[in-house]
Amino acid sequence: MIVAISGVNDTDNPGPGIGVARSLKEADSSIKTVGLSYDVQDPGNFMDFVIDKSYVLTYPSQGWEPIFNRLLYIKESYGLDAVIPTLDAELPSYIKYQDDLKEAGIKTFLPNLEQFELRSKENLGDISEVLEISYPKTKKVFNIDQLKKAVNEIGFPCVVKGNYYKAYKAKSLPEAVYYFTEISNEWGFPILVQEIVKGDELNVIGAGDGKGNSLGLVAIKKMTTTHLGKIWNGVTIKHEKLLKVAEDFVGKYKWKGPFELECIVDEDNIILIEINPRFPAWVYFATGVGVNLPKRVLDVMFDKNSDMSGDYESGKMMVRYTYELITDIDKLSELATKGESNGYKNL
């Protein structure tokens, strides 16, 4: 079985790819992992104990065709049975063209476009109502006048965020205008102005089978984060209401594939902040406590029976750390000149 995985940028702002690959390898060492990389220096390209072979791809902004052709090339030259995309920017294309991949003999396990749109911040208010949880007071704005009106209504500090990416805390009108301009220049409209809510940042990782059944859920609390908000240390928790919300999400929307719910929780008040339609970078944490979601997703993809038990212990901690890997520059040379690693192990 050969599985391609993107997001192998295992940096201080890590992608989920290495966690996915590690989960698969630990479940079945015969699985070959292919790293799909957008930068020759992505650490995953050099981590031969997790990634068997790496390929450099053109950025998703260049369109689907080069990526699709690259995947066909990988299938022909190395072999490829399935692909697990893990980066936000790639997902719309993979979702849109999942049938083309299927026809080419490359399996995926992704939500459909309609489900994918649910995670748009515009729709989170409606989802919160369906799941009977809260959503912060949010105003959609398209110009500075609307922005001024929205911040007056919501008050400072508030959050200025893009519909899909980026969020900043604004403490004054000039700051709000600055972030409005920055986000809209990069990601377009609408821009959302949102109230700041208090509580603990609790997240749930899960996956759905597309028929309303959960493939497993794990809830955590972020204990420390990087300046970009990525989890560094975390602890598993058993917040029954939060886990029930995640289960309802899978059931009510017949969610297919992996996801992460980001919530702020104040006692029993659960406030939905974001839904990520992919594995989060901390995916291996769930694997480490016995809920190997990448393997379960792969098993469902290939109609295999898998252990879908939801149980894990609370009070298990994840500690991320940095480490140095010494290798030969030949590997970088292969990637830079041929766009793929030689597949040999580091010496």
Partner: peptide, 18 residues
Amino acid sequence: LAVNKNGFAFDPTSGETF
């Protein structure tokens, strides 16, 4: 609350430690 003999307490619902 899970309280150990050293007085470290962990709240399994919220993840808070004391």
